[in-house]
């Protein structure tokens, strides 16, 4: 069975993606590694998440299908660029967003925050807030989003490209940590 990263790469290929524009993050690292080695994919690494959106906008204008990949904290950084290019200028864009501080599917945001109080590091409150805010911000921006749980969910990538193309708007796929192999 293919790894989540391999399944996503396969979906990216199916959708004609030639450019992987990214600020690499730990959650998507296996996918980054695969794309770096893939002959059909050009990886454009940039220093700031807003840069990724601006470069992706230019690629799209130039006719090159691309995907944007960064962590949710980086998405927060990039919101103005997403608003301007994706929402205002109606450039379809697909963002794969690493969902750091993800709230469990069976847990409310308030419960997750209450549970995290007093903890530090990866399970600490600030990280949980990061996770809680991610879908809320996407909703505020009216950006459709779905969560990719495993390799079986990789077809969500095709859903995202179809949706972005139909609506001429940004679409996000939230991703948890993926297995390396």
């Amino acid at each position: 069975m293919a790894s989540t990263a391999a399944a996503i790469l396969d979906e990216l290929r199916k959708n004609g993606v030639k450019y992987y524009v990214t600020v690499p993050d730990s959650l998507s690292r296996p996918l980054f590694e695969l794309c770096t080695r893939d002959e059909g994919m050009t990886v454009v690494s940039v220093c700031h998440e807003a840069d990724a959106v601006s470069v992706a906008a230019g690629l799209h204008i130039g006719g090159a299908t691309n995907v944007i990949v960064f962590e949710n904290s980086g998405f927060f950084q990039a919101i103005e660029a997403v608003r301007a290019f994706g929402i205002d200028m109606e450039l379809p864009m697909v963002m794969l967003i690493g969902w750091v501080g993800r709230v469990k599917a069976n847990q409310s945001a308030d419960d997750a925050l209450a549970e995290s109080v007093g903890k530090r590091g990866a399970a600490g409150t600030h990280v949980t807030w990061q996770g809680v805010m991610t879908p809320q911000l996407l909703d505020t921006l009216r950006i459709p989003h779905a969560t990719l749980e495993s390799a079986a969910g990789a077809p969500l990538i095709s859903w995202a490209f179809r949706k972005a193309g139909e609506t001429r708007q940004p679409v996000a796929v939230l991703m948890d940590r993926m297995e390396a192999h």
Partner: peptide, 18 residues
């Protein structure tokens, strides 16, 4: 474009790469 402010070099780079 004026928004996003600062995005011109990135957009130009994307067009140039494509």
């Amino acid at each position: 474009f004026t928004a996003p402010m600062g995005g011109v070099p990135g957009t130009a780079t994307g067009i140039a790469l494509a």
